[in-house]
Design a protein around this nucleic acid. Sequence first.
RNA 1: GCGGGUGUAGCUCAGUUGGUUAGAGCGCCAGUUUGUGGUACUGGAUGUCGUCGGUUCAAUUCCGAUCACUCGCCCCA
Length: 413
Amino acid sequence: MSSLQPVRGTHDLLPDESRRHRHVEETAFSVARRYGFGEIVTPIFEFTDVFSRTLGDTSDVVTKEMYTFADRGGESITLRPEGTAGVARAFISGGLSQNLPLKLFYRGPMFRYERPQKGRLRQFHQIGVELLGVEGPQADIEVIALGYHILSALGLKDKVQLELNSLGDAESRAAYRDALVAYLSGFKDKLSKDSLERLERNPLRVLDSKDEGDRLVVADAPVLTDYLNDASRAFFDTVKTGLEAVGVPVKLNPRLVRGLDYYCHTAFEFTTTALGAQGTVLAGGRYDGLIGQMGGPATPGIGWAAGVERLSMLLEEVACGDRPLAVIPMGGDGVEALRVAQRLRNAGFAVEMGYSGNMKKRLNRANKLGARAAVILGDDELARQAVAVRDLDSGEQEEVPLAMLEERLARFR
RNA sequence: GCGGGUGUAGCUCAGUUGGUUAGAGCGCCAGUUUGUGGUACUGGAUGUCGUCGGUUCAAUUCCGAUCACUCGCCCCA
């Protein structure tokens, strides 16, 4: 490798891959618009506090994965590791509480100092949505349905599975946490080293441990949904029946938890088995306490984020859009070819030029570019105020008067 | 952060039990066809064998370190 390699965990999106990313983002946004979402663009960096105060101090994202630095004014700045905190900050600083409910879509790069793996980069891209200001479970249903709709529009419906759980409200979760800790403490000799640590810092995380021994212990552990109080249970029931009503297949997973501290009630993940260890493709939940905790007016919220790289890897071939026309000048100084190319571009065609070489090379290039037809400007034809138009799929060629160019080429659009 | 695997041409990979000119397929370039592509045939170019260091008469090959990728853990989308 040369020393001109990109920084570890980053890479260039060449046109091919870039097109796939764009397809994911644009499909997502066009579906989101149908649900009433508008796009918000927040800065890529924020004051470090924005993340450290909201994501929770038990999360690795905050404790060891942030790109944090002091800027020239001595402020502690962090490259955003996720999107929700920045949107919440914008909500507060922009006084958006006047406009509730608010539906926001975002996309863009995120940064985490992690060990790179397939589908896990240090600079990666997410799309996400946040629905702010709706207390009822209709919001949860609509937001999850939107996620499912986007995955369907991307052709991934059969490759993913929605897993759903409820973390309940603060009271329910505290009751459950106590019961879980009490239960797990009886098995300290059987738990893995990782899980013993989780038992101290973030006991719910023991539930989704991959360790065999942990799983045996967890199999008989108390179940979160048994500890929901009446209000939390009713909320969860509505979410379930609502998802059924809008046709989103659900698999309940009582061991599904969330990594970041601000979540409550609904937690969900669309997962796939096609990406190895990075199986989560779109995930989120409800975060009623977040905005109040950040110093804004108490405002409920729910949202999700999805990894664009992961979605892109699941996609089949993405068609590359309109096939161009190739304008091929033969002889002369090529000015006439530029004139023709410009006319066709003004008429809405994508036009490629055959820059150099003989006819064979130029046609070859046209072919590689996937051109639909070639417009050949030969001296003979030009003398008759005409060009040769070759259909590159059928091989048929005809002479077309210059005056009728746009009209006769319309069928290649 | 922890443990395993890999690194040879633009791409996918073979190979060298340490020895002089390092290979294939695909791609690329050229020709067969000087105004006609895709197919076919013929020919051609291309490598600091990831990097640095060690052992050796000799290292792409063995050893060490390092960087990157990759698989699992951790974490998470």
